[in-house]
Write a protein that binds this DNA or RNA. Structure first.
Lengths: 246, 246
DNA sequence: CGAGAAGTTGAAGCGTGTCAAATGCAGTGG
DNA sequence: CCACTGCATTTGACACGCTTCAACTTCTCG
């Protein structure tokens, strides 16, 4: 079994044995665990490390002074939070856990070492960053243009897709620890309306969602309801020019 | 007068004479002009260069199949579009001009040269990228949580702030080439509602906006209406550890 | 078994969208 | 110089998607 960081980056670039070795070391070095519903880092704090999620779900969120809360990104196992954000002086948002989470801290020094000595790994990290930015743009589109049912359907498609790539689905099923309140914060809808929207999707025989498990009954139709097109996830893996030869 | 790319990057990092020299060359090498309301690159195409905006306004936008359109970012003079996006196979969005625009194309080779030989410049480019991603997150918050008048006020504050940093304001005034339709696409509102919202801001003596010129009558109050806080623009310039000594 | 969290339901209100028409403004050609 | 054209802005009336509030039910877990 590959270590998770190698697995993640090989989505983008084929790595050499030494590449894998250095990643395996990095991802097993400093491990931290967090309980569900706690903050890993808060707005205003100074970021120290890059976080690699080994297990569990987390989110990036921003809050307005009056308490309104927007989840601006969701992190699944294998995701990397805030590559090189330590260039900035302070966090402009917080990162909190949804479930219990295990992370590997990747140090500034490690990343510097990658940058200078492991170009393919650096490329893969770049790629991962660009994908997460692309997802951010798609969320902007989601919030700005899609209706409630489109938003929810789109988000479910995206998450299922990303989980599948991470090997965290069984057939059409996956763990789904988000509460309706979480979905509301991520889609910019009220809890009540998320509830009604989910009922609509259930009534249309598109999904089953109960006991923290999601089943997609008809991905095609769900994708069409959510106007979902996976292009923005950039999973093409056609970067053969970057592949290792050894 | 500094060349514009040096000016931009010195927002973040103090550069050496050689740093400036190489940037001056890069930003004067391949220059292209585009008319207003044309596309620089379209969704699905393969990106070739990074674009540095010498003059004019442009935007990044995404469209749904049925025509709904979301502006996900605005580019002002001095902004850089899509740093290193050429790692990806194809554009997941389009970039179009608002006004006539002049860009300098920065080649892949130039950026590679920077990465290996000009670490402070590379850091500054990184910083610029991280800021643009931070802006993207703030827009997500804007669309997800703020009301119509908050959204518009917030956007006006952000643009005025960015223009000021770029030296493109005179006192409380600036050129403002966005139409109400553009504002609608950027804020996820309808044109009609943007119109009413602007009237509200005008009635409250917060702004004057006519003949493509914006005047901010009371920035403090406009910022408070829009729940605007400039932190996310990361203009602190405290990265002294990165400054050049020569 | 009890208590708090998560989910569900109904009713009412409002913020924003939609539609349609009028006005203003700038550029173009006769 | 004026009519013509087209785009941007403005206005009014109405519709509706979503929010809010409040109560109730169902889960979860110590």
């Amino acid at each position: 079994m590959l270590d998770p960081l190698t697995r993640k980056l090989e989505q983008f670039v084929r790595l050499s044995v030494t590449d894998r070795h250095v990643l395996g070391l990095a991802a097993s070095h400093r491990i931290r665990k967090f309980a569900a519903r706690t903050d890993i880092i808060r707005e205003g704090e100074q970021p120290r490390d890059v976080h690699f999620i080994l297990s569990g779900w987390a989110c990036r969120y921003k809050q307005l002074e009056d308490g309104r809360r927007q989840v601006v990104a969701l992190f699944l196992p294998g995701d990397i939070c805030d590559l090189n954000v330590f260039i900035l002086q302070q966090m402009d948002h917080s990162i909190g856990t949804i479930t219990a989470v295990t992370i590997a801290d990747l140090s500034r020094e490690f990343l510097e070492q990658i940058r200078t000595g492991y170009p393919r790994v650096a490329t893969a990290l770049w790629w991962e960053t660009l994908v997460s930015v692309s997802i951010q743009r798609e969320w902007t589109l989601n919030l700005g243009q899609r209706t409630a049912s489109e938003r929810v359907a789109h988000l479910l498609c995206e998450l299922f897709f990303r989980l599948r790539v991470a090997g965290l689905t069984q057939d059409a099923n996956c763990d789904f620890p988000l509460t309706q309140a979480d979905l509301a914060d991520a889609t910019g809808l009220s809890k009540v309306h998320v509830n009604r929207t989910l009922q609509e999707l259930r009534a249309d025989k598109l999904i089953v969602l109960r006991e923290r498990t999601l089943s997609i009954l008809d991905f095609e139709r769900l994708a069409s309801v959510g106007l979902f097109n996976a292009h923005y996830l950039h999973l093409e893996h056609e970067g053969h020019q970057f592949d290792a030869n050894d």
